[in-house]
């Protein structure tokens, strides 16, 4: 069944269609949350919250935007709420220190050294840069879709993405030279 048809059925009250729709977006929601938040537990909580919101507010979705963009907008909002709820005493922008959780998913990532490096580097990015990078590379959204998802101007999205890549390149270069300091 196509996504558009599923959405229509779910909006008309078909419970099975709604559940099927949620299953189809479950992995992408979790993946975005995982790379934005940086650990499995927060990602699971955020993904649950996102799916519950979609379940309750699906009737408010309009077909003007892509469904994936609408979903990722909810993901980014929930992740921002998580960031605010944490009220970190140390700003992520200033001190990007992530203590990796030794879970199964993360162990899989640690198998490859390069992915570990880029994972650490992503964790050191500012929140907005991180979101833009995740949406661009993991959800394969265009500039315009990222702008819609994050409710940002198009030029701002480009600027964030270019700077994020520049920072990642510098971080990875430093790491290759003698470790990320």
């Amino acid at each position: 069944m196509q996504e558009a048809e599923l959405i229509r059925k779910a909006q008309s009250g078909d419970h099975d269609a709604l559940v099927e729709l949620l299953r189809s977006i479950e992995t992408s929601v979790y993946r975005s949350a995982y790379y934005i938040l940086g650990n499995e537990q927060d990602a699971l909580d955020a993904a649950q919250e996102v799916l519950i919101r979609i379940y309750r507010k699906l009737d408010t979705y309009q077909e003007k935007a892509k469904f994936s963009t609408w979903v990722q907008r909810i993901v980014s909002n929930v992740c921002m709420d998580k960031f605010r709820a944490k009220k970190e005493t140390v700003s992520i922008e200033e001190h990007e220190l992530i203590i990796p959780d030794r879970n199964n998913v993360e162990d899989e990532i640690l198998l490859t050294g390069l992915s570990n490096d880029i994972q650490e580097a992503i964790g050191k990015l500012p929140r907005q840069y991180r979101m833009v990078v995740v949406l661009r590379y993991l959800e394969d959204l265009s500039y315009q879709e990222i702008a819609e998802a994050l409710d940002l101007p198009l030029n701002t999205v480009k600027s964030y993405l270019f700077r994020a890549r520049q920072q990642l390149q510098e971080l990875l270069y430093d790491y290759q030279k003698g470790g990320i300091g």
Binding site: Y34, Y137, R165
Partner: peptide, 13 residues
């Protein structure tokens, strides 16, 4: 960097 980002492992819950 862009290639590394494209090759990020697809994490699954």
């Amino acid at each position: 960097v862009s290639q590394q980002l494209e090759q990020l492992p697809p994490v699954v819950p």
